[in-house]
Design a protein around this nucleic acid. Structure first.
Length: 185
DNA sequence: CCTGTGATCGTCT
DNA sequence: GACGATCACAGGT
């Protein structure tokens, strides 16, 4: 029996609900990945969001159809993966609990500690091999796969690494998971 | 455990 | 020309 995968309709909802709902699902890229344990929501009218300034070349996927990937480069070094929700909104995937393709992830990251494999948006993209080549691709077909999971233990807190709207509690995580990029009290 | 800092480059001013 | 939705490492507590 195959696990059900998330449909486009899942992403065509209010972005905060999507961010919360992604916690506990399984994200795979070419079969490599794990359980999503940390996300952040970014909205169209959100000063911290890349979409706040309106459509640009970089944020174009955020204004495209729901259920697609928005991948951007962070600090000139790292890649970060988002799932696009309604126009101008997206969910940043911040951390996974590694479960599939662990050897491949260790090789890509040159790290053996499971807790350091996918605990951060840049780290998980490196572990899963996500790059600009994935920008704009649909999340419900290869190489992506997101399997429905679900959890009831979602905690919230302020988002990380932003300066504007820093107090908005749109960071979500699996409470107590050792795979969070940072504790979520 | 915690804080500070350099790396590095695309994007927008 | 400035600034990041980050990471790794160094050093002090």
């Amino acid at each position: 029996m195959q696990s059900s995968t998330l449909s486009r309709a899942f992403f065509d909802r209010e972005v905060v609900s999507v961010a919360q709902g992604l916690i506990g699902t399984v994200l795979l890229v070419d079969g490599v990945g794990g359980v999503i344990v940390e996300t952040e929501a970014y909205d169209r009218d959100d000063p911290a969001s890349h979409s706040f300034v309106g459509p640009t070349a970089r944020n174009a996927p955020m204004f495209g159809p729901p259920g697609h990937a928005y991948v951007y480069r962070s600090y000139g070094v790292h890649w970060c993966l988002n799932g696009v929700s309604r126009p101008g909104s997206a969910v940043l995937i911040r951390a996974l609990e590694p479960t599939a393709g662990i050897d491949a992830m260790k090789l890509r990251r040159s790290v053996s500690d499971l807790r350091l494999l996918c605990s951060g948006p840049g780290r998980l993209c490196q572990a899963l091999g996500v790059s600009a080549a994935h920008n704009g691709l649909a999340l419900d077909r290869a190489p992506f796969r997101i399997e429905a999971g679900g959890t009831t233990d979602v905690a919230a807190g302020p988002r990380i690494g932003i300066t504007r709207a820093a107090e908005v509690p749109w960071r979500f995580g699996l409470a107590g998971s050792p795979y969070l990029s940072r504790p979520l009290r």
